Simulated scan of single mutants.
Amino acid sequence: MTTEKIKGPASYFPSIEKKYGRPISDWQALVRKHYPAKHMELVDLLKSEHGMGHGHANALVAYTLAGDKQAAV
């Protein structure tokens, strides 16, 4: 049994859920609701309107955008 450490933006998810009290799926829906905004516009939205720290907001936006881009292929 191996337990691989989660790397990249998803490594922030447990602390995002704990600190901001909402599941990642809620945050991703919020990000998607503001498409086609650019990456930093979405980060700024999470920071200014939801009090999210820069690292958490950036990780969430990066992960969501990358996943949606991959799904579109």
Rank of each mutant, 00 (worst) to 15 (best):
Tyr20Cys: 01
Gly67Lys: 09
Pro9Thr: 00
His56Gln: 05
Asn58Trp: 13
Ala71Ser: 12
Tyr63Val: 04
Ala59His: 05
Tyr12Ser: 04
Ala10Pro: 05
Gln28Ile: 08
Lys7Ile: 15
Gly67Asn: 13
Ala57Gln: 00
Gly21Glu: 11
His34Gly: 01
Lys69Cys: 11
Met40Thr: 12
Asn58Lys: 05
Arg22Phe: 15
Leu42Gly: 03
His50Val: 04
Gly67Arg: 05
Ala37Lys: 01
Arg32Ala: 09
His50Glu: 09
Asn58Gln: 07
Tyr20Arg: 02
Val31Ala: 05
Val43Met: 03
Ala62Thr: 12
Tyr63Cys: 06
Ile6Gly: 03
Ile24Ser: 03
Lys7Glu: 15
Lys38Tyr: 09
Tyr20Trp: 07
Leu42Phe: 06
Pro14Gln: 11
Arg22Thr: 03
Ala29Gly: 08
Asp44Phe: 08
Tyr63Gln: 12
Leu60Val: 09
Ala57Met: 08
Lys38Asp: 04
Leu30Arg: 12
Lys5Ser: 02
Glu49Asp: 08
Leu42Pro: 00
Gly55Lys: 15
Lys19Val: 09
Met40Cys: 02
Gly21Ser: 07
Glu41Gln: 15
Leu42Tyr: 02
Ser25Tyr: 06
Gly21His: 13
Tyr63Ala: 11
Leu60Pro: 07
Gly51Met: 03
Glu4Gly: 09
Leu60Gly: 07
His50Asp: 06
Gly53Asp: 14
Gly67Cys: 05
Glu49Cys: 01
Asp26Gly: 09
Ser48Cys: 10
His54Val: 14
Lys19Asn: 11
Thr3Ser: 02
Lys33Thr: 04
Ala29Asp: 07
Lys69Trp: 14
Pro14Trp: 14
Gln28Lys: 09
Leu65Gly: 00
Glu17Tyr: 06
His54Arg: 07
Phe13Asn: 08
Trp27His: 01
Thr3Val: 08
Leu60Cys: 09
Lys19Ile: 10
Lys5Thr: 11
Val61His: 01
Pro14Lys: 06
Val73Gly: 15
Ala37Gln: 06
Arg32Gln: 12
Lys7Pro: 00
Met1Gln: 10
Lys19Gln: 15
His56Ser: 10
Lys33His: 08
Asp68Glu: 14
Ala37Tyr: 07
Ala59Cys: 02
Ala59Ile: 04
Pro9Lys: 01
Val31Cys: 05
Val61Asp: 02
Val61Arg: 00
Ile24Tyr: 09
His54Ala: 10
Met52Arg: 07
Ala71Gln: 12
Val31Ser: 07
Leu45Ser: 08
His54Pro: 03
Asp26Asn: 14
His54Asp: 15
Leu65Ser: 03
